[in-house]
């Protein structure tokens, strides 16, 4: 059976952090594969902002920050090594701003991520429903020595992350449901000062970053040209500490969030190499993070790197 191809839906997991724009491209978060020898690349813009945040579990505003905004422009690419094995990479440029107070915004290239995505199982039922199981391994690491310890205006947390993820996708007619869980191992980070207090004093510039677990449910319509989906994402930090009263946030805080969102992707009928993406999400609940509202949009181009008998299209199925 001829496989259909498509673009990845790429959405920054915007703003569930104290910093916004922690660039977790969701190419590795959806149940869609590139065909063998197909390359897809594009740019995604994200705008996330918050006025309220959770200081530990206490929700508050901060008149000396006003609204904190992070924007990013991310380049993403995805290549089909085989129909069942894709490699993808991305890196964002991030810039931040606080609308009140005196603190200076930050900007710079954040973390590069590379993910290997393997479709381990692709089962078709008698009624044409499909069940697929995916396993993914990824690494992300800072491309630049950016400032970590200036939250909430830092552009990233600076750790090198190894992510392992298992995903299950079920397709019925053109409606789908996807669920995944991932474990994120985070390396320690080094900050610019040589002592800090979390719940005790450390005479060190090294900060132990607790690992994280990330879970997501997504469901919606996956048609030939249009994908429309709703998402619910839960991030849990396995350790870390709460921001104390009126303190500044710190990279190793226990940052948790529950984020709801919607995504759309539309592939042009006349020029199926090109797809347009748009999405929005909102942090429903959190701990040591901002209550972010985020919007994003992007454009992607897909083509075969080798001559293929397949049609150079982005048709969906």
């Amino acid at each position: 059976m001829k496989k259909r191809t498509m673009l990845k839906t790429i959405v920054m997991a915007a703003g569930s952090m104290m910093l916004i724009g922690s660039a977790a491209a969701q190419t590795e978060q959806d149940a869609i594969m590139m065909n063998k020898n197909q390359l897809c690349g594009g740019f995604m813009y994200n705008h996330g902002s918050w006025k309220d945040y959770w200081e530990g579990t206490l929700k508050r505003e901060n008149l000396n920050l006003g609204t904190v905004t992070a924007q990013s422009m991310m380049f993403m690419a995805n290549y089909g090594i085989t129909d069942n094995l894709n490699i993808m990479a991305g890196a964002p440029y991030v810039w931040t701003h606080a609308s009140a107070g005196t603190l200076h915004g930050m900007k710079g290239i954040q973390d590069v991520s590379v993910t290997l995505k393997w479709r381990a199982l692709n089962f078709k039922f008698a009624n044409n429903d499909k069940l697929a199981v995916y396993a993914m391994g990824g690494i992300s690491t800072p491309l630049d020595n950016y400032v970590i310890d200036f939250l909430p205006l830092s552009i990233g947390l600076g750790s090198t992350n190894l992510t392992g993820r298992v995903m299950v996708d079920y397709l019925h007619n053109r409606f789908f449901a996807t669920a995944w869980g991932s474990y994120i191992f985070r390396s320690n980070v080094k900050i610019d000062r040589d002592a800090y207090y979390d719940e005790e004093l450390h005479n060190s510039n090294e900060v132990k970053m607790p690992d994280q677990v990330n879970l997501q449910l997504r469901t919606g319509y996956r048609g030939r040209y249009l994908i429309a989906e709703a998402l619910l994402t839960q991030l849990c930090t396995l350790g870390g500490f709460d921001i104390t009263r009126n303190n500044m946030p710190f990279p190793s805080n226990q940052m948790n969030s529950t984020v709801a969102g919607i995504n759309f992707k539309y592939t042009l009928k006349q020029l199926t190499n090109i797809s347009l993406l748009a999405g929005a999400n909102y942090t429903i609940h959190g701990r040591n993070v901002g209550q972010t509202t985020a919007f994003n949009g992007g454009v992607f181009y897909a083509f075969y790197t080798k001559k293929s008998s397949r049609k150079p299209t982005n048709n969906l199925q």
């Binding site: 690494i139 392992g164 191992f185 060190s204 090294e206 132990k208």
Partner: peptide, 23 residues
Amino acid sequence: NNIFAGACLVLIAAGIFACNKDI
């Protein structure tokens, strides 16, 4: 390729347990 991908995942998992996070 599948075996290769599987091996990569195992290596990543091994890395998780091999690293010492003491500061």
